[in-house]
Amino acid sequence: MRHIISILLENEAGALSRVAGLFSARGFNIESLTVVATNDSTLSRMTIVSIADDGIIEKIVKQLNKLIDVIKVTDLTATEHIERELLLVKVNVNQQTQVDINKQIDAFSCKLVDVSEDIYTIELAGKSKKINDFLANLDASKILDVSRTGVTGICMRNRNLTKGA
């Protein structure tokens, strides 16, 4: 099953490699990983998507908690949460394809962030599934470049990732 694991950790050199090293050393899978400092610059938030059964996810959470730099680990998938990912994609456009691409952009509420003579740069934020669906609807032969941020997420309502349980 797909899990989104949110990790609050010390914003220190090497903290990322400790987490990444743990996943590779223990053979855990990483689908995506994002990391950036929080509003408190001494802390980083890392969000990892991993596909594994519940037993493995339990091991991942325990092993992450064991890392000295890690302050809190939350399996977002076990709570009500919001996930988002950002896509930037460049596609070739010409007179024949333009209509269809514009239709997709409208259907998925994408933003057109740059337009040149024959290239569109499109931005889309949403759940990973939405991004996958959008990409699947494009003509693969017209896609020049795809860059995705990977998933980030947050708990809904009263649950917090930073303080308390």
Partner: peptide, 8 residues
């Protein structure tokens, strides 16, 4: 003492 040892 190590939670990661439990049910490993």
């Amino acid at each position: 003492i190590d939670p990661s040892s439990i049910s490993k």
